[in-house]
Amino acid sequence: MQSTRPLTVALVDDYDVVLVGLAHMFDSYSDRVVVAEIDATTGLSDTVDIVMYDSFAQPESDHDEISALVGNPRAGKVVMYTWNFHPDLVAGAQQQGVHGYLSKTLPARELVASLERIHAGETVVSDPPRRTSPASGLDWPGRSEGIADRESEILALITQGKSNAEVARLTYLSPNTVKSYIRSIYRKIGATSRTQAVLWGVAHGFSPDNHRIDHWRGGP
C-alpha cells in the first residue's frame, strides 16, 4: 500500500558505514521513502513515520535501546532490521512493542513494501532467512577487506571488548561456531592474537559511536 506522501524513515545504528549502505538502498524509491539519517552531529526535530533500528553488532538480548525507541514520542513505528532471527529475539522484540522485524536479505522493493504495510497498521515479521547473500546496497565495516556480514558483527563485538562467551550469548551462536568465525576473521586480517584483531578493528571502523543511541534515548 502506498501513502499519499513518502514515508519519513529514520535509521538508527552506531556505525556510519551501516547507515550509509542502508540509506542507499532507498535511492530508487525516493517517491515512497524519505530517509532522515541520524548521526552524532545532526539531530532530528520532526516526528518520523518509522524508525529502523539496525541491530548490527548490538547486544541484542539487551532491550534498553528498543525500549527507548518505542517510547520516543518522535518515532511513529519501530522496526528491527537484522540478520538474527533467533525465536527468542523475535518474541522479545515483539513484547517490547516493535511493529516489524525485517530481514536484511530483503531486496529494496520488498523492504519498501514492508515499511508501507507497517505504516498502514500491519505488524510485519519476515520469514527467517537462510544464509544467503545480504540485500544489494548494504554495507558493513570490513566488507571491502573480504569480511562477511556475520564476521563483521563478531569482530565489532570483539573490538568492543566482548569475550567469546559474551559474543556467543549476544549472537545466539554456539561457542564453537564463534571460535570458527574468529579463526576465519584472523586469517582474513592477518591477525595472530586478539590484541592484533582489536587494533585492526579500531583502525578499520569497528568503533561504534554510541552518542547516536544516547541521542534517541534522551529525546529531542
Rank of each mutant, 00 (worst) to 15 (best):
M1I: 04
M1N: 04
P6T: 02
A10E: 03
D16H: 05
L19V: 14
F26I: 01
Y29L: 06
S30Q: 10
T41W: 13
T42C: 10
S45H: 13
T47L: 09
D49K: 13
I50H: 03
F56Y: 03
P59F: 12
E60D: 13
S61P: 11
H63P: 04
D64R: 15
D64I: 01
L69K: 00
G71E: 13
N72F: 13
N72G: 10
R74I: 13
G76A: 05
A91G: 04
G97R: 01
H99W: 06
Y101R: 05
K104H: 07
P107R: 07
E110K: 15
S114Y: 12
L115C: 02
R117N: 04
I118S: 06
A120G: 04
A120Y: 06
T123L: 08
V124T: 05
V125Q: 01
S126N: 09
S126D: 12
R130Q: 12
R131N: 08
P134W: 11
A135C: 02
S136L: 14
P141E: 03
R143G: 03
S144R: 14
A148I: 00
A148H: 01
E151N: 04
E151V: 04
E153C: 06
I154N: 00
I154K: 00
Q160E: 12
S163D: 10
Y172N: 08
S180R: 02
Y181I: 03
I185L: 02
I185Q: 01
R187T: 03
G190H: 00
A191R: 00
A191M: 08
T192N: 10
R194T: 13
T195W: 02
T195D: 15
Q196K: 11
A197S: 06
V198W: 01
H204Y: 01
F206I: 03
S207V: 13
P208H: 06
D209M: 09
N210Y: 15
R212C: 09
R212D: 02
D214Q: 14
H215F: 09
R217P: 08
